[in-house]
């Protein structure tokens, strides 16, 4: 994947580039909004990582301009402003996801990959298939090797998110934000318990476990 990092903090940008390179992605760095806009318009990128506050042109303006030109490249905003209304303004300006500083590198990589993935599977789907796991989005049913698996509505949403990001790690924060729509971290391991419940439903009685725990970051659904 080609990722454009638009961040005025050079050191932070370099760390991001290292982390993304480690995950096998190619990165380009732009130090401010004006150069970032130019780079984004000129080159082909899968995801843009944009710092909200930058000299010359701030991230919000930059992304608004980009969207006005019809560019739909997914944007991940990075910001030290983490209040709900800050997120909302970020998403309204055309951002697709919002990550509050300071963040863990694995979190950044997971979110960038999820954004790129979402773009790949842009068309409206009625079924999701990962390995021998099949999800009917209209009938709201899940089958593994032909056996129907009975899921609660939230478990269904959780599995849907994992299936849409199959093969890539998703973090607990991502699950909490995208599945439960909360932007805070509970002190107890509520997400882990939900995931292990889901795991017991989709993996129990099957030879090969699909839902993996990724040490230090979260979970991954493997085909």
């Amino acid at each position: 994947m080609r990722i454009l990092i638009i961040e005025d903090d050079v050191e932070a940008g370099a760390a991001m580039a290292r982390g993304l390179a480690e995950a096998g992605h190619e990165t380009v760095h732009a130090p401010d909004g004006v150069q970032g806009l130019k780079a984004a318009t000129d080159g082909e990128f899968d995801v843009l990582v944009v710092d909200r506050m930058m000299p010359n042109m701030d991230g919000l303006t930059m992304v608004s301009n980009l969207r006005r030109e019809g560019d739909q490249t997914p944007v991940l905003f990075l910001s030290a402003l983490g209040e709900i209304h800050d997120r909302v303004t970020g998403l309204k300006a055309g951002g697709d996801d919002y990550l509050v500083k300071p963040y863990a590198l694995v979190e950044l990589v997971a979110r960038v990959e999820a954004l790129a993935r979402r773009r790949e599977t842009g068309a409206v789907q009625t079924t999701l298939r990962v390995g021998d796991l099949e999800m009917d989005l209209i009938g709201r049913t899940v089958h593994r090797e032909g056996t129907e698996i009975d899921l609660q509505p939230r478990e269904f949403q959780l599995l849907e998110y994992l299936m849409r990001n199959a093969g890539q790690p998703v973090t607990r924060t991502m699950l909490l934000e995208k599945v439960w729509e909360y932007h805070f971290d509970p002190q107890t391991n509520v997400i882990d318990v939900h995931v292990s419940r889901l795991r017991s439903k989709i993996d129990k009685g099957f030879e090969r476990p699909m839902l993996q725990t990724v040490r230090g970051s979260g979970y991954r659904l493997d085909a």
């Binding site: 709900i84 909360y182 932007h183 805070f184 509970p186 002190q187 107890t188």
Partner: peptide, 19 residues
């Protein structure tokens, strides 16, 4: 109220109870 803040407050109270 602000649903998100109240959710977080409830979550904190429940965290304590569970802990």
């Amino acid at each position: 109220g602000n649903r998100e803040f109240i959710a977080q407050a409830l979550s904190n109270i429940l965290d304590n109870a569970v802990k």
